[in-house]
Amino acid sequence: MNRRNFVSLLSQLLVFLPFGGTFGAFLKSADKSLTAEAVTGQRYAMGIQISECIGCGRCVVACKTENNVPRKPFFFRTWVERYIIKKDDEVIVQSKDGGVGAFTETVKEKDILRSFFVPKLCNHCDNPPCAQVCPVGATFQTVEGIVLVDENRCIGCSYCIQACPYGARYMHPEKHTADKCTLCYHRIKKGMLPACVEVCPMQARVFGDLNSGASPLARLKRMKNISVLKPGLNTKPKVFYTDLDGEVR
């Protein structure tokens, strides 16, 4: 019996002890051979250039169409926020209808210090809190690093929604399971772009493989200053922002 089999057998047995699972998880995380497959092959990610986004909301519409996200303006796999930082340092953030349709003006132009749009989506964290807390393992990471939800497994406890720091998840009103961005897994595995990237008129969204040396995303990461959202939580997001303002949370 090799080491890998031994570890998984041990963690299987530990399941029947109180808190055994915790030890099992420790064992697994210590054994690198179990996660080795995640390092080779493709690792999909997205880059977002804030200075390019015009806040048109086409991405939100395209996402809802492509992925059959409930149409009513409450559930989003991706959405656009508008930030207005006023001269008196007050910060106004809006995302009416997730950014579909025009952002209505609420601030006099002479009061605006700076303003910009921020598209948001699931960050497909390398260290995803949602997958960690899912009691039945319905949320998981694929070998490509994409966080998916198995809707036939999800029991609908909402713990993952509580654990996501980015508000990227919602409870599907008909399926009663957690739902979120899949990075258009069904498209990218066929060599296509995610729907939001496809329709972005400014190419503010850049999709690519982190393990590839030459891709629009690799170039973006090489040429620009990159930030991620809430880095202090150590979720290791794989949505990379350029020109990200400090006010964005």
Partner: peptide, 14 residues
């Protein structure tokens, strides 16, 4: 789960 995901309908042709 991955197979189910892959079988989803594509709307945008590229």
């Amino acid at each position: 789960a991955i197979e189910r995901e892959l079988a989803s309908e594509i709307h945008y042709a590229g």
